[in-house]
């Protein structure tokens, strides 16, 4: 199948990246590439609710923060195993999403944007005020989580492939989900929620489930991000982080199955590239974003493929 060969080609290309960078003597960029993969995961989770579900959540960074701080706090308390910390990060982020979603999803439109933003800011200030865990200054993990099996995540290659494997699993699950009954119901709620209620769907419940799944995945991304720099700080959940994720989704393709991946790749790559030439990299990024919104409203991934909202064959 075309879709499948595209996915395999993408994974092979990403898997070949580290040796290629090594051959070019640019090993530094392996860590940067891992960072892109983590953001791709976070942006993909946002795309599930924003793109497929039409929920304009402006507080997604809260779940990244919840995941990151779970790992950070556990590390500070002496729990360094990835097998404990990462699942717990997912659970904590999902729990946060359940609480925030249960309340926020009672609102619509601009109120939903504002209430999710408000919740994220609340979480942000709670962590700023948590002096025991570094407060404003953040928290050093000391080292990356331990996985055993003779693997050391401090090795950049191992780290990169860990992130790649987890991203592949997440994208596979998301694709599976969006092609299943649940995904179609979610898209239909985005299209016409009143009608969905009128044909007997419990729309609130479906939206909440999507919100919690997205939060859980963002929590995993947060756990990885904490490991990436062996450091967590409230900056991870500053509202500009939520904005960055939204921009990634928009650049990549709202509702497109690889929108998050493409968006993270393009935005972070572009920032890095433009920063080589100018101090005003944000200006250049802004121009690109403007161009995409004006000329490719379906995002970059959408340029290569028909919209995900097309009916199934």
């Amino acid at each position: 199948m075309n879709q499948r060969s595209l996915a395999i080609a993408g994974i092979v290309a990403l898997a070949l990246l580290p040796p290629a960078l090594q051959a070019l003597d640019q090993v530094f960029y392996i860590g940067f590439a891992a960072r892109i993969l983590i953001y791709a995961m976070a942006a993909s989770s946002l795309n599930l609710i924003l793109g497929n579900g039409g929920m304009l959540s402006f507080g997604h960074a809260a779940f990244i923060g919840a995941g990151a701080y779970t790992v950070g706090i556990l590390a500070a308390e002496g729990v360094g195993s990835a097998w404990v910390a990462w699942p717990l990060a997912i659970v904590c982020a999902a729990a946060a999403a359940l609480v925030i979603g249960a309340i926020s999803l009672r609102t619509r439109g601009v109120y939903f944007i504002m209430i999710t933003l408000a919740f994220a800011q609340m979480v942000y200030y709670i962590l700023v005020s948590m002096k025991a865990y570094g407060g404003d200054d953040g928290l050093n993990l000391g080292s990356r989580s331990a996985v055993g099996f003779g693997l050391d995540l401090k090795d950049e290659f191992t780290w990169y492939y860990t992130c790649l494997a987890l991203l592949a699993v997440v994208l596979y699950l998301l694709n599976r989900m969006t092609a299943a009954r649940f995904g179609r119901a979610l898209e239909a709620i985005r299209e016409n929620e009143t009608r969905m209620e009128a044909i007997g769907f419990a729309t609130y419940r479906h939206k909440l489930v999507a919100f919690v799944i997205a939060g859980a995945i963002a929590g995993l991304a947060g756990a990885l991000l904490a490991n990436q720099s062996s450091f967590v700080s409230p900056k991870l959940m500053h509202w500009t982080q939520s904005g960055t994720l939204m921009v990634m989704v928009i650049i990549g393709g709202v509702g497109h199955r690889y929108g998050g991946l493409v968006g993270a790749l393009v935005l972070l790559g572009l920032e890095e590239l433009i920063a080589e030439f100018t101090l005003y990299s944000q200006l250049g990024v802004g121009m690109v974003l403007l161009g995409i919104v004006l000329f490719a409203p379906q995002g970059i991934a959408g340029l290569f493929q028909r919209s995900a909202t097309r009916p199934l064959p």
Partner: peptide
Amino acid sequence: LAVQARSGTSLSFWRPRHED
């Protein structure tokens, strides 16, 4: 979609819908 609403759960995440 309307048939789906009344036949079975829509909290189904794995099975491709076109097989339905």
